[in-house]
Protein backbone atom coordinates (compact mmCIF):
# COMPACT_ATOMS: atom_id res chain seq x y z
CA UNK A 1 0.00 0.00 0.00
CA UNK A 2 1.81 3.06 -1.24
CA UNK A 3 0.53 6.51 -0.57
CA UNK A 4 1.97 9.92 -1.24
CA UNK A 5 1.37 13.42 0.09
CA UNK A 6 1.78 16.51 -2.02
CA UNK A 7 1.55 20.07 -0.69
CA UNK A 8 1.02 23.00 -3.02
CA UNK A 9 0.47 26.41 -1.46
CA UNK A 10 -2.48 28.60 -2.27
CA UNK A 11 -3.49 31.16 -3.31
CA UNK A 12 -1.02 31.53 -6.18
CA UNK A 13 -0.45 34.66 -8.22
CA UNK A 14 1.20 34.67 -11.61
CA UNK A 15 4.97 34.90 -11.23
CA UNK A 16 5.03 33.40 -7.72
CA UNK A 17 7.86 31.00 -7.02
CA UNK A 18 6.13 28.35 -4.91
CA UNK A 19 7.59 25.50 -2.90
CA UNK A 20 6.09 22.12 -3.73
CA UNK A 21 6.58 19.42 -1.10
CA UNK A 22 6.23 15.68 -1.62
CA UNK A 23 6.37 12.73 0.72
CA UNK A 24 5.85 9.07 -0.19
CA UNK A 25 5.90 5.77 1.69
CA UNK A 26 8.79 3.58 0.63
CA UNK A 27 11.27 1.54 2.67
CA UNK A 28 14.25 2.64 0.55
CA UNK A 29 15.92 -0.63 1.42
CA UNK A 30 19.64 -0.12 1.01
CA UNK A 31 20.67 -3.67 0.18
CA UNK A 32 23.15 -3.56 3.07
CA UNK A 33 20.93 -5.05 5.75
CA UNK A 34 20.55 -8.69 6.74
CA UNK A 35 17.39 -10.48 7.81
CA UNK A 36 17.12 -12.86 10.77
CA UNK A 37 18.32 -15.77 8.60
CA UNK A 38 21.51 -13.96 7.65
CA UNK A 39 20.39 -13.28 4.09
CA UNK A 40 20.96 -9.87 2.54
CA UNK A 41 17.70 -7.97 2.11
CA UNK A 42 17.86 -6.93 -1.54
CA UNK A 43 18.01 -3.30 -2.58
CA UNK A 44 14.61 -1.73 -3.13
CA UNK A 45 14.65 2.01 -3.61
CA UNK A 46 12.93 4.75 -5.55
CA UNK A 47 15.40 5.66 -8.27
CA UNK A 48 13.66 8.55 -9.98
CA UNK A 49 11.19 11.30 -9.22
CA UNK A 50 9.89 13.64 -11.87
CA UNK A 51 7.56 16.61 -11.88
CA UNK A 52 6.27 17.95 -15.18
CA UNK A 53 4.04 20.88 -16.01
CA UNK A 54 2.33 19.54 -19.09
CA UNK A 55 5.20 18.29 -21.27
CA UNK A 56 7.86 20.54 -19.69
CA UNK A 57 10.17 19.29 -17.01
CA UNK A 58 9.97 21.20 -13.75
CA UNK A 59 12.17 19.07 -11.54
CA UNK A 60 13.77 15.65 -11.70
CA UNK A 61 15.62 13.77 -8.99
CA UNK A 62 17.74 10.68 -9.51
CA UNK A 63 17.94 9.07 -6.10
CA UNK A 64 20.34 6.56 -4.64
CA UNK A 65 20.20 4.51 -1.47
CA UNK A 66 21.57 7.36 0.60
CA UNK A 67 18.14 9.00 0.62
CA UNK A 68 16.17 8.29 3.78
CA UNK A 69 13.16 5.96 3.91
CA UNK A 70 9.77 7.49 3.09
CA UNK A 71 11.54 10.08 0.94
CA UNK A 72 10.72 13.73 1.35
CA UNK A 73 11.48 16.01 -1.58
CA UNK A 74 10.68 19.67 -1.91
CA UNK A 75 11.52 21.92 -4.85
CA UNK A 76 10.50 25.25 -6.31
CA UNK A 77 8.39 26.14 -9.31
CA UNK A 78 7.73 29.49 -10.94
CA UNK A 79 4.07 29.67 -11.86
CA UNK A 80 3.39 31.63 -15.05
CA UNK A 81 0.12 30.04 -16.17
CA UNK A 82 -2.41 27.41 -15.16
CA UNK A 83 -1.03 23.94 -15.59
CA UNK A 84 -1.52 20.32 -14.68
CA UNK A 85 1.39 19.08 -12.61
CA UNK A 86 2.21 15.43 -13.04
CA UNK A 87 4.31 13.72 -10.36
CA UNK A 88 5.84 10.33 -11.03
CA UNK A 89 7.95 8.11 -8.81
CA UNK A 90 9.78 5.12 -10.28
CA UNK A 91 11.98 2.56 -8.65
CA UNK A 92 13.18 -0.99 -8.19
CA UNK A 93 10.78 -3.91 -8.56
CA UNK A 94 8.79 -1.99 -11.18
CA UNK A 95 7.71 0.57 -8.63
CA UNK A 96 5.59 3.28 -10.22
CA UNK A 97 3.25 5.88 -8.79
CA UNK A 98 1.70 8.81 -10.60
CA UNK A 99 -0.17 11.72 -9.05
CA UNK A 100 -1.72 14.71 -10.73
CA UNK A 101 -2.42 18.11 -9.25
CA UNK A 102 -3.91 21.20 -10.85
CA UNK A 103 -2.33 24.61 -10.45
CA UNK A 104 -4.76 27.47 -10.80
CA UNK A 105 -3.69 31.07 -10.66
CA UNK A 106 -5.90 33.18 -8.43
CA UNK A 107 -6.31 36.68 -9.67
Amino acid sequence: MTNARIAIPSPIKSGDVIEIKTLITHPMETGLRYDSMGQVIPRNIITQFECRCGPDLVFKALLNRGIAANPYLSFFFEVVSNCTLEFTWQGDKNFYLREVREIRIDR
Binding site: V17, K21, T30, L32, C53, D56, L57, V58, F59, K60, A61, L62, L63, N64, R65, G66, I67, A68, P71, Y72, L73, S74, F75, F76, F77, E78, V80
Partner: peptide, 28 residues
Protein backbone atom coordinates in the same frame (compact mmCIF):
# COMPACT_ATOMS: atom_id res chain seq x y z
CA UNK B 1 28.60 12.02 0.97
CA UNK B 2 32.15 10.71 0.48
CA UNK B 3 32.16 8.42 3.53
CA UNK B 4 28.84 6.69 2.75
CA UNK B 5 28.76 3.22 1.16
CA UNK B 6 26.99 4.78 -1.83
CA UNK B 7 28.59 8.25 -1.91
CA UNK B 8 26.54 9.72 -4.77
CA UNK B 9 23.40 10.58 -2.83
CA UNK B 10 21.30 12.13 -5.56
CA UNK B 11 21.29 14.21 -8.69
CA UNK B 12 18.73 16.97 -8.96
CA UNK B 13 17.88 18.26 -12.44
CA UNK B 14 16.07 21.53 -12.98
CA UNK B 15 13.80 22.52 -15.84
CA UNK B 16 13.68 25.97 -17.32
CA UNK B 17 10.70 27.04 -15.19
CA UNK B 18 12.13 26.14 -11.81
CA UNK B 19 12.51 29.68 -10.53
CA UNK B 20 14.84 28.72 -7.72
CA UNK B 21 17.38 25.90 -7.57
CA UNK B 22 16.71 24.86 -4.00
CA UNK B 23 15.92 21.33 -2.91
CA UNK B 24 15.13 19.89 0.49
CA UNK B 25 15.24 16.20 1.25
CA UNK B 26 16.27 13.79 3.97
CA UNK B 27 19.38 11.66 3.66
CA UNK B 28 21.20 8.83 5.38
Amino acid sequence: APMNPAPHIAQFLFGAGTGRAQVRTRMR
